[in-house]
Write a protein that binds this DNA or RNA. Structure first.
Lengths: 339, 339
DNA sequence: ATGAAAGCGCTAACAA
DNA sequence: TTGTTAGCGCTTTCAT
């Protein structure tokens, strides 16, 4: 099989000009259908595939979409496959999907500029803002998901975490709890700050007390949830809350693990609730009461929006640049009714 | 910021020719260091980034590595982030990493040909073979990991599952078990077949009986583990084995969940062991006794090998095309000693 | 150590 | 509906 089959050879064999072959590959150009079929048939025979470098040089298109996450590391839960499979579902066939961590970009010009037709930023941290504004400055079509960006020019899809937490706290109060603790997330993540504030607000509204000695900040990993829960369990029993609110499911599972090792039954001895509704929260023991975080849906909406931006289908019907999704309470087993 | 800064403008501003600017960006070309620095400085000022389409047209390089998985779907455990973070660790700065599922490729010529400098195939199924041979036919540098390929021309890294299983079975026997059951994986995956056979062999060696009524085949999802375990629990008690071997950790966790719902304690009432040693197997309750499947390590070895192939650093010291990794027994809590 | 010119494979006017 | 021609931005001879 030849390594360098060009448009020229196809043209010669088909008895047409290069332009005609080129047109055969462009869906919206005028060409007799029989000619197109003939060209495709020959192309297939000799193994011709358009050279995208040459095409890109002329059209300035790359047929590559970039997905940039704040960071790619092990221990990401099922996060990544959820995002990628949902993006692929909306990705046109001829596009490639490149995946990269923002924290690894050393040279924007080399790594990003001139390489993507569009970019989806899955952002968890304000540290990503520099990158996001570079995208904007370079006029690279972008959609930012997962956290709100305070800029009307940037298309943005995120979930209304506060409402979710507020509902969670209300549910806890309704189940007769009076005092709660919390295991929060990384302080550098916007979501952590907002979730913590929402917990405080929720406690105020529902006349719950948030035990200061049982407020811990983790790093979203199961291990940190476990370690921090150990600390909470060491509290004198009169200070120990009857329910611990965790900033994500991973830490909640770690917290359950800590209880298990200390022979403390969840939820009979203490209740634990999570956030995110990751896949395995429903098969953990006990199954987690949590709040959905529709990251798959956001990813799918993001790629659809991005493609429409790239194809310049500016929707004047729907000019809004931000979409806020509503979270949903998922009630399972880890919260006890102690009334 | 200008959208189309070319080599020409940099050349003009630096008072040199286009060729010299081009040389500045090629590490192994002869150029005075001061000129190079001057060019870089100007390039940075006016926001120049080489146009990779133009470069690729000449050099036939794409600066894109492709990662192809058998399939990308939700519920993949932490598999994907483990693979990607390890590949990124070995990826040169100027390369993009494209991620795709083999099961979504409709047109090899369009999606693959002429688009990658090299490809890593993370293969779980013989269904991928067509794709793998297309890579070979098109002379695209490739490394296949996760499952053995029976072809000496294809660079291949995988783990010796059988040995792992055999050790697992031996451990079960040493802990006093006499009869076991199994929850296997998808029959279309090579690994499933081999793991099942290894279980049978292990039973023969260690004088264990594999209860026919307690052999079930699942699809590697936690849900299938749960459903299948329910079936096993419905068996009359004299037929119910004292230990269930699961083909992966996800199904093992599902099986534990089934026990929990039926008030059966793991491992006191029944033992369950897994395979893969995924991240959360150590914080599940009980923590899983399992076998490591060094997929992160394989990914890292694969990218290093691939880059060396691309850079034509043919290592005559080490001409082997296959590497077999040894698995490790991870002993935790889910297997009881019933002696 | 640097420059001039040819050409990579393709698309986009313009012409027929 | 199809063909001719110019040129996209870069690297690579071959000079100097």
């Amino acid at each position: 099989m030849n390594l360098l089959v060009t448009i020229k050879e196809v043209a010669k064999l088909a008895g047409v000009s290069m332009t005609t072959v080129s047109r055969a590959y462009n869906p919206k150009s005028v060409i007799k259908e029989s000619t197109r079929q003939k060209i495709f048939s020959i192309a297939k025979d000799i193994g011709y595939a358009p050279n995208l470098s040459a095409r890109g040089l002329v059209t300035n298109k790359k047929f590559v979409i970039g997905v940039f996450l704040s960071s790619i590391h092990t221990n990401m839960s099922t996060f990544l496959s959820d995002i990628l499979s949902n993006i692929h579902d909306g990705l046109p066939d001829n596009y490639l999907l490149s995946v990269e961590g923002i924290d690894r970009i050393t040279d924007f010009n080399q790594k990003v500029k001139n390489r993507f037709d569009g970019v989806i930023v899955v952002s968890q941290s304000t540290a990503d803002d520099t990158f996001i504004y570079q995208l904007k400055d370079n006029h690279i079509p972008s959609v930012v998901i997962l956290r709100p960006i305070d800029n009307d020019d940037i298309y943005n899809i995120y979930s209304d975490d506060e409402t979710g937490i507020l509902e969670e706290i209300k549910l806890i109060a309704e189940n007769g709890h009076k005092s709660i603790g919390m295991i929060g997330g990384r302080p550098e993540f916007v979501a952590s700050i907002k979730r913590r504030r929402a917990v405080e607000t929720g406690c105020a509204i529902n006349a719950l007390s948030l035990e200061p000695a049982a407020i811990k900040m983790g790093d979203y990993s199961p291990e940190s949830g476990q370690v921090l829960m150990e600390e909470i369990l060491e509290l004198p029993t009169d200070q120990r809350p009857t329910c611990i609110v965790c900033a994500n499911d991973d830490m909640a599972v770690g917290a359950i693990r800590a209880c298990y090792e200390n022979n403390i039954n969840v939820p009979n001895d203490i209740s634990i609730i999570g956030f995110d509704n990751v896949d395995y929260s429903k098969i953990s023991t006990p199954a987690l009461t949590t709040v959905s975080n529709p990251i798959g849906l956001m990813s799918n909406m993001a790629i659809k929006k991005l493609i429409s931006i790239i194809n310049d289908e500016t929707d004047n019907d729907n000019p809004q640049t931000s979409v806020v999704l509503q979270p949903k309470l998922i009630i399972r087993e880890s919260l006890a009714n102690i009334k």
